[in-house]
C-alpha cells in the first residue's frame, strides 16, 4: 500500500534523505529506526506531502505523492512530530474542525467522534482547551485527529514520545489492535517499542537505509539484543558509507 522509490531531499548542503526505497503492505507495522537527524521525520513529511522531494517519488494507496497529494492525504492519517494542535480550541471543536476539513458530515461525524473519543480516552477532557492539557493528552488528541477518518494508512512520528509507561502501553495496544487491517509506519528511538509492535524494521542513518528486516531476524543475524544491533549498524555502516 505504500511504495517508496528513491526518495531524496536535501536542505542546502545537508542531505537529509538520500535515496531511500521500501514497500509496506497491508497488515504490516513498519518501525522506522535511526539516530537523531537520520532523516526519519523528513521522510515521513515527504510521504504526508508536506515537503516535496527533490528526486524520486512514492505512492500511497495508489496515489502518487507528487501528482495527487490530496488523494494521498485523504487516505492517510498523519501524526506529526510533537503532535501539533490549535491550543485555543477545545478538544471537541478541534475534532469537529478536522471532520469539517475531511468532509465527514452528519451521522458519519457523530459516529466517528463517538468511536474516536473513547478509543483515545478523551472523554474527560472533551470540553477542555487543548493548551491546558498535559503532554500525554495532547498526544492523544493528535492520535485522535489522525485516526478520526479510519484511514487505511497511518504514519505516526514518535507516537509515544513524552507519554508515561501506562499511556505508552495503551498507545502500543491501540496500534497492535489496528495493525491487521491497516498499513502503519511509526518512527521511534525506543527499541523495546519496535519489538512490542513492529512486524518489520527499517534502520536509517544519514538518509540511507542500512537494514530492512524483522526485529527477530535482526537479533538472530547479529546474535545480540536489538539495542546492540542498532548500535552496530548505525555506527559501523554509517561510518563506512561516509
Amino acid at each position: 500500500m505504500i511504495e517508496v522509490r528513491q526518495l531524496r531531499k536535501s536542505f542546502g548542503p545537508l542531505i537529509a534523505v538520500d535515496g531511500i526505497s521500501f514497500e509496506v503492505e497491508k497488515g504490516q507495522v513498519l518501525g522506522l529506526l535511526g539516530p537523531n537527524g537520520a532523516g526519519k521525520t523528513t521522510a515521513m513529511r515527504m510521504l504526508a506531502c508536506f515537503i516535496r522531494p527533490d528526486e524520486g517519488t512514492a505512492s500511497i494507496c495508489g496515489h502518487d505523492i507528487i501528482k495527487d497529494p490530496i488523494g494521498v492525504r485523504r487516505c492517510l492519517g498523519y501524526l506529526a512530530e510533537n503532535a501539533p494542535a490549535y491550543g485555543e480550541m477545545t478538544v471537541g471543536s478541534f475534532l469537529n474542525f478536522i471532520c469539517d476539513a475531511r468532509q465527514i458530515k452528519g451521522p458519519d461525524r457523530r459516529r466517528a467522534i463517538d468511536r474516536i473519543v473513547p478509543l483515545c480516552s478523551l472523554e474527560s477532557v472533551y470540553h477542555q482547551t487543548i493548551e491546558t492539557l498535559s503532554k500525554g493528552y495532547k498526544r492523544r488528541v493528535g492520535l485522535a485527529q489522525a485516526l478520526i477518518h479510519d484511514p487505511p494508512v497511518l504514519i505516526l512520528d514518535e507516537p509515544t514520545d513524552g507519554l508515561d509507561p501506562n499511556q505508552k502501553f495503551e498507545v502500543r495496544r491501540l496500534i497492535t489492535q489496528m495493525a491487521s487491517d491497516k498499513c502503519i509506519i511509526i518512527s521511534t528511538h525506543i527499541l523495546e517499542e519496535v519489538e512490542a509492535v513492529c512486524s518489520r524494521t527499517v534502520i536509517i542513518a544519514r538518509g540511507k537505509v542500512l537494514a530492512d528486516s524483522t526485529p527477530a531476524a535482526l537479533k538472530q543475524q547479529y546474535g545480540c539484543s536489538l539495542e546492540e544491533v542498532f548500535r552496530k549498524i548505525t555506527r559501523t555502516r554509517a561510518a563506512s558509507a561516509a
Binding site: 513529511r45 490530496i70 485527529q145
Partner: peptide, 14 residues
C-alpha cells in the same frame, strides 16, 4: 511558530 502548519497542510486541502 506552533507547528500547526504541518497539521493544516497535511489535511486534504489544497
Amino acid at each position: 511558530k506552533v507547528g500547526t502548519i504541518e497539521l493544516l497542510l497535511t489535511l486534504p486541502l489544497t
